[in-house]
Design a protein around this nucleic acid. Structure first.
Lengths: 242, 242
DNA sequence: GAGTGGTCTAGACCACACT
DNA sequence: GTGTGGTCTAGACCACTCC
């Protein structure tokens, strides 16, 4: 009956130990981890075995290797545009752009059945709800509603968000120690309701993309549920299939 | 000025030689390639170097490794559901399902400006156009229009498609020697026009997902452009972000 | 048991970044 | 030059599949 793995290679055990170190905050986002030789010595294995463990973590974008410099903990805070790793919107014409954000609302609430299920909370547990609009070239394109577990994001306020110059995920990892490492999205087409029409400056019932995202941190723990409504007259959602 | 790679490691050269063999049809989809030891001997490198080349090809889903059995050329024809590798539609409720297809039309035409650009053809070059509906549980969910270069798909007819019991990509690789190895999709929300409303049994102007796909074969050559209109009242488009 | 892919080691050398 | 990750080798042994 049981279908658990009967065999765990050494490099995977090393991977788990590195993962534990990352989760425990032994090395912080943007910092470098010890060299492969150091880790091999510490774990009493060969460098090749450490390499294979790091290879997998780099493949999952938890670590970033830089030849000649070292291996670094991935971050949503980098100067380059890795802060927009999860943004799939592209302009119909012209170069890739990055959005400006305007916060509409930030309040406490209680988990509905839907949110509780998505975030693995109990019904009615405390959450934080954000609303915001994303602008490309001064044009509103995305209306986001974002639900977060209150227990993790205790001190989160509108002022805190508005006073921060970076992406939300950058703020989450810097100020709340919670790193988003992967996410699942579900996409549907819906008609704009009054609020969306208003915020995005389209007519009611205009077709919009409805993008629901659950983002996960270490250990596959869900820590964000968001629903975005996207205008797609001048942008599209890009996806690569392999 | 030039930014080409200054250095190509051995395993990447081996990878290119394997790729050339795949493209030339030296090993056909579903068949096994020679063992790592054989290839190492043939290419006069160590087994580890061959391994690394195969690792990359397996990571791109061009090869599939099976411990104890060998390494096989990937296919869209497998009994398992790898034939639906590119299908991202999931039911809102219940288990994953796989669609039935009904061909509406198959005719020759000439490449419009848009299609010519997408398929890297000259304006007016011969193409084949397919229209079909995909059904989940007897319900129409997707209306597809598929454009293919006429030069590659010479003998493609409605009869040929209807007489084939497998996915389109399976037919393409089996009968036309053209394997789809990756694809880019662009997703927007659009209102149903008369034809879509009719085919999908929804009201006109119902919001639908518009999914445009360009599929590529070896050497990044585009060989299919399709536009799908998806009902998303009982299904959604699933995507994993990492 | 023979053959295949998968793991692990130890050591040599290359490419790159910093100082 | 020194230290980092990246490549390559050769060989031993493990896990899985099939005969």
């Amino acid at each position: 009956m049981d279908e658990g793995p009967r065999f765990s290679p050494l490099y995977r055990q090393i991977k788990e130990r590195l993962l534990a170190g990352l989760e425990a905050g032994e090395w912080k986002p943007g910092e470098s981890i010890p060299s492969e030789v150091d880790l091999a010595t510490r774990f009493k294995v060969s460098q090749g075995t450490v390499r294979k463990a790091i290879d997998e973590l780099a493949g999952e974008f938890l670590l970033v290797r830089r030849q000649g410099k070292g291996t670094f903990v991935a971050t949503h805070t980098d100067e380059d545009h890795s802060q927009y790793r999860f943004l799939r919107l592209r302009p119909q014409e012209g170069e890739q752009e990055y959005p400006a954000s305007r916060l509409l609302d930030c309040h406490r609430g209680r988990a509905s059945a839907e949110v509780a299920r998505m975030l693995e909370l109990r019904l009615g547990e405390g959450i934080v709800v954000l609303k915001r609009v994303l602008y490309f070239r001064e044009q509103p394109v995305v209306l986001d509603e974002i639900c977060l577990p209150g227990s993790i994001f205790k001190g989160l306020t509108a002022a805190r968000i508005n006073g921060y110059s970076g992406s939300l995920y950058s703020l989450f990892e810097t100020e709340f120690g919670t790193r988003m490492i992967r996410a699942d999205e579900r996409i549907r087409a819906v008609p704009a309701d009054g609020e969306a029409a208003d915020s995005l400056r389209v007519k009611e019932r205009t077709p919009l993309l409805c993008v629901e995202r659950v983002a996960y941190t270490y250990g596959d723990r869900p820590v964000e549920f968001r629903r975005g409504l996207y205008r797609t007259d001048e942008h599209f959602y890009a996806n690569k299939l392999a």
